[in-house]
Each structure stands twice: as structure tokens, then as C-alpha cells.
Design a protein around this nucleic acid. Structure first.
Lengths: 211, 211
DNA sequence: TTTGCACTGTTAAATGAATAACAAAATGGA
DNA sequence: TCCATTTTGTTATTCATTTAACAGTGCAAA
């Protein structure tokens, strides 16, 4: 956890990834520089927050032109990417797994979805959305061989538990759980959970309240 | 924004939805009561936090048996649900939209996905995952007729902007944006954004750091 | 009875995150 | 030249959220 950038807050880490995306959008428009308030506007946050985050990672912009887009993209990459890239496996090749793969394709070069796993035999052995799909029984073998450390869980809820066990046993060290089922992992495995229903309920709550 | 429960924190609102799910899981096991630490364990948070949240919504458990599961489910429903339910529309019936609809089906009775919209003509006019799919041109008409207030955005990024404009013009008051594109909404529309790539990058970062 | 235990409910303290405030610097006029 | 403007970088402050601390309560067992 010790870096030359000492203790970047969790929320800043999340935003760095979003800054990079905003920067890429501006970059594609042919711009070379960007102001903090431009980044802020895209992400619906304040310019102060952007500047503060960039201060934390030790980046300085120019006073009159703002931030150099390609420099900043590179610096953010140095912080959040692994130098040699990291491989990702998707567990559960249903609609959600497929959506994720398509969503992801071509967007990040340091993070590569390398394999898909599914329990249904008819999915094994061929490609779905360009990713080779294996039977879960081969998880340990493939994950070991490919040195995959990150897994995305998109199986049906009733299979979540078993699948997580397989993932952990195979050597996965970070899991992103899209399943509404609660799961358990050992201390040395990083677990991030996201529940789509909760998100919709939150929106519904605030829509109700603002009436 | 004023309620008889004065100012429930945002984070508590998010957790209430998750508590309800945990309660339903226990309920299905045939249990009638649950302790704060049991809820906490399922969600990987502390028992204190659970008790504090429940205090904020004014619920009291019994000292020896814990919380009455069905009472608590009802109380949470009173807070986050709308009494007469709310209708939801999905914009973009690709893999992600389809996954969401399947994910959602049968889980929440006060929140109902009522219509899907898509730009491709071949999807219009029939059902996808049980939901009737319309051409986006009919959005204003259908949304008005059905009194839909909540919209989920799952179109390809380059269509995000235009689609949001249509949603807002049609009367949508809360948007859940799953698109990596930045979008703009008026002040009276609640916008919640979720970026799958950022989530994966976050997991990747912490996996890298813990090596 | 009375003691110990395992809870809850609540106030207080600590931590974390966002916002405000402002000095410093560069530019382009007046 | 000097002033107004715009933007960065940073410290101080406020706000939000979590965690800690602990009193109170009911039950069970001695």
C-alpha cells in the first residue's frame, strides 16, 4: 500500500479513472490542453475537486493553458495501471457478461478480458463477443496458465457462492460482484460489489422525494 | 425533501435497499428474526452501522430476538418505495438492457420495468425478455401515457446525448446512466451514473497495490 | 435473587471527503 | 508599465460518515 504517492483516497482513485475518460474525449476532439473546470463539467463535480485530486497525484498544469492532456493521461496510467497489464476473466457468459465484454472492448489496453467461463456446456468451446469461453471446470487450469488475477462475477445469484469459491481457489485476487447474492472471500482478496437493483431503487427514492 | 424521517443520509438510503435484500434472504430460510451482526456480516459492514441506520429510520428491535424481519422489510418499503409503485423504462435494448430486465424480473413489486426503447427498427414491436420494445420515436407518447418517471440508459455511448434529451423531453425525472458518455440533464432531473470500466479499474488498482 | 451475557439504542469522537478561501503566476489589454 | 482577469496549487474549514464507547435491558443460569 506504500507508494511514492502516499495514500491516495479511495474516492480519488475512482475519479482518476473517470478523468482519464474525460481527457480521452477531449483528446479525440483534437485538443491538447484542458482546464480543471472543463473536466469538472463533464463529470458533474467541482473544479476545485479536480485540482485537488491532481495535486494529490503530483501533477502540475500550466497556468494559462491548463493541463496537458496527453501528459495527464500518461500520469494517471502510471498510477492506476499495471506496467505489464492485467488479465481479467468473466464468470457467467449470459447477457450481462456479454454486455460487459462488449462494453469493455478496445477501451483499455492495460486491462484485458482474456477468458470467459460458464456452467452451460453449449457455451463452452467457442467464442462469445470475441472472448473464448471455457467450462468452469477448467477455471483453475486456465487462470493459472494465463496468470489472471481479476474476476468479474455475472452468474445467476444461486451460483454466486460456488463460483466465488472456484475463483478464489484458482488464484483470483480481486472480484467485482454484479450478483445480488452476498458472497464471502478471504482477507487477501479484494471484493467490490455492485447491485443494480439498489441503484435503481436509489434513483426511484430521489425521484419520489423531489415531487 | 422533507419527511417524517428527517434527512436520511444518502449512504443510508443505499444500504436500506441492501438490508431489505439481506432480510429477504433470511426470510426465505424460514427465519423471523435477525440480529444486527447477521445483517452486517452479509453486507461486509459493521453491526454498529446497521443499528445506527435502523435508528435513523426509527425502527426498534427486540433485545433478545433482534429485529423482526417482516416488520423491517415493511418499514424499509415505506421509506424507499412509492405507495403506488413507479414505472421504469429501459433505453437501449442491447445485451445490457436485456440483462437488466432479466436481473430485475420479479424482484421488486413496487418498481416495474414497463417499456423498452431502441433505435433499431427490427427490435421495435415485439417483446425482449418479456418487455415490450418500442421505437424511440414513440418515447414521449408511451412515457406520457404510462406515466413513467424513471429511465435506465443502456444505449451505445455515441447515442447517449440524444437519448437523454429525448428522455428528459418525455418527462423522465430520474436517469440511471450506464453509458461511459458524459451527459447533461436539467436541475430537476436526478442523475445517477455508473461506469463499469471505472469499477474494474478500481479492482485492478487494489489488486496491484496489495501485491 | 443475583450475576453474567448478549444484545440494542444513543451520544460522543474520529476519520474521511468536499468545499471554501486565497496567494501566486501568467497573460492581455489599457 | 500597470491593472484586471483567469487559472492553478494549497491550506484551512466545514460537512458527512463511520467508528467507538457505553448505558440500559431482558434473559438464563447459578
Amino acid at each position: 500500500m506504500e507508494d511514492k504517492y502516499k495514500e491516495i483516497p479511495h474516492k480519488t482513485i475512482e475519479r482518476l479513472s473517470q478523468y482519464r475518460r474525460a481527457l480521452q474525449i477531449y483528446s479525440e476532439k483534437g485538443k491538447n490542453h484542458i482546464f480543471s473546470h472543463e473536466i469538472a463539467a463533464l463529470l458533474h463535480i467541482t473544479a476545485v475537486q479536480v485540482r485537488r485530486d491532481l495535486m494529490l497525484i503530483g501533477y502540475s498544469g500550466s497556468l494559462r493553458k491548463g493541463y496537458d492532456i496527453s501528459d495527464l493521461i500518461m500520469l494517471i496510467g502510471n498510477i492506476i495501471d499495471s506496467p505489464n497489464g492485467q488479465k481479467v476473466a468473466v464468470f457467467g457468459m449470459g447477457d450481462l457478461g456479454t454486455a460487459l465484454i462488449n462494453y469493455f472492448r478496445g477501451r483499455r489496453d492495460k486491462l484485458q478480458i482474456t477468458a470467459g467461463f460458464d456452467i452451460s456446456p453449449e457455451k463452452g468451446g467457442h467464442k462469445i463477443a470475441g472472448i473464448y469461453c471455457y467450462s468452469v471446470e477448467r477455471a483453475a487450469e486456465i487462470i493459472g496458465k494465463e496468470d489472471i488475477r481479476i474476476g468479474i462475477l455475472t452468474v445467476p445469484p444461486d451460483q454466486a457462492d460456488d463460483t466465488v469459491r472456484i475463483m478464489v481457489d484458482s488464484g483470483i485476487k480481486g472480484i467485482l460482484n454484479y450478483t445480488p447474492a452476498p458472497v464471502e472471500v478471504p482477507d487477501d482478496v479484494y471484493l467490490e460489489e455492485y447491485n443494480m437493483i439498489s441503484s435503481i431503487e436509489k434513483v426511484a427514492y430521489y425521484v419520489k422525494e423531489q415531487k
